[in-house]
């Protein structure tokens, strides 16, 4: 089918009219989408400014190095900060190998049968389970049945379970993105399945796995509900020294300060939020740096 060529010159008035309408529609959509994006950014900006105005003046080395106190001016965040750092490290130690192992099994080894499909569906569902439910599980399983008590270990194990589905899903995505031709090349040279996974699949997928894991960990560091459930304490005047010590964490400390009547504690809460945000930002930057590093290995 040949298009009807305009007889008089280059311009076709009918086409130009419709083209104008198309361009206008495009402009409209652009601004609607911009507005949608702006809502998110603006909210974040307002939130940050608000917290900064409230809390920035309270931020000081003493704030980071003091334990909680009855007097807001001398109360600090040391126990909660170290509690969070401990907890997140232990969580990573447990969740990373489990999650990556599960992802490798599901992607590289598992046959496509009903059992593995059942596992897959369950993992996807688990990622959507509210965190309070994980708190209940942690309380029953780790605190009581396994006798960990209200310890760091119980808290970290609960958090590990909570983020495990996310790590598995992110790792599977990353593993699936490794082209099949690389696997074929490796197998064709007489590599076993594990050698192929170890030397080719994992290195290629590593950046994605790492990013997914760190993002999952950033979620864990901000989680409060499961910790309240398993009874992480709010008034702790020491830094944990072992995995069976009781502990507190940043969001719990913040929650506690917010619920006090004295305005001084509200300032502390704002400062605590700034510390938590700083930790989160730090983790996300580490994720980005690691991703770029491992992606451009060559």
């Amino acid at each position: 089918m040949t298009a009807q060529l305009p007889t008089a010159g280059f311009r076709d008035p009918e086409f130009a009219r419709r083209l104008g309408r198309r361009h206008r529609a495009g402009t409209w959509y652009k601004w609607i989408c911009f507005a949608a994006a702006a809502v998110g950014v603006l909210t974040l900006a307002v939130l940050l400014t608000d917290v900064l105005i409230d809390g920035a003046r309270r931020l000081s080395p003493e704030f980071l190095s003091s334990f909680p106190s009855r007097r807001p001016e001398s109360a600090g965040i040391k126990a909660a900060l170290w509690g969070s750092i401990w907890m997140i490290s232990l969580t990573a130690l447990m969740a990373f190998p489990l999650g990556v192992g599960a992802a490798i099994y599901l992607e590289e080894y598992a046959a496509r049968n009903w059992l593995n499909r059942l596992i897959e569906v369950n993992i996807a569902n688990l990622a959507g389970v509210p965190s309070i439910v994980y708190g209940l599980l942690g309380l029953e399983l780790f605190v009581r049945a396994l006798g960990f008590g209200r310890s760091l270990l119980a808290g970290s194990a609960t958090m590990a379970l909570l983020i495990l589905p996310v790590i598995i899903i992110a790792s599977r995505e990353a593993i699936r993105a490794v082209p099949g031709s690389i696997r074929e090349a490796s197998y064709a040279l007489g590599a076993s399945r594990w050698q192929t996974t170890r030397h080719h699949v994992l290195p290629s997928a590593f950046a994605g796995i790492l990013t997914g894991t760190i993002l999952a960990l950033s979620r864990a560091i901000g989680e409060t509900a499961p910790l309240i459930m398993i009874g992480a304490l709010t008034f702790i005047a020491f830094v944990p020294e072992g995995v069976l010590d009781p502990f507190t964490a940043l969001p719990i400390q913040i929650f506690n300060w917010v619920s006090r009547p004295q305005p001084g504690f509200h300032v502390n809460a704002a400062a605590g939020i700034l510390v938590l945000l700083a930790v989160l930002l730090l983790m996300n930057s580490v994720a980005i740096v690691l991703r770029n590093r491992f992606q451009r290995k060559w």
């Binding site: 082209p179 690389i182 090349a185 490796s186 290629s204």
Partner: peptide, 11 residues
């Protein structure tokens, strides 16, 4: 040994 249609060197 086998060589494939599309060159597939390891990265």
């Amino acid at each position: 040994g086998m060589v494939f249609q599309k060159p597939n060197p390891f990265p």
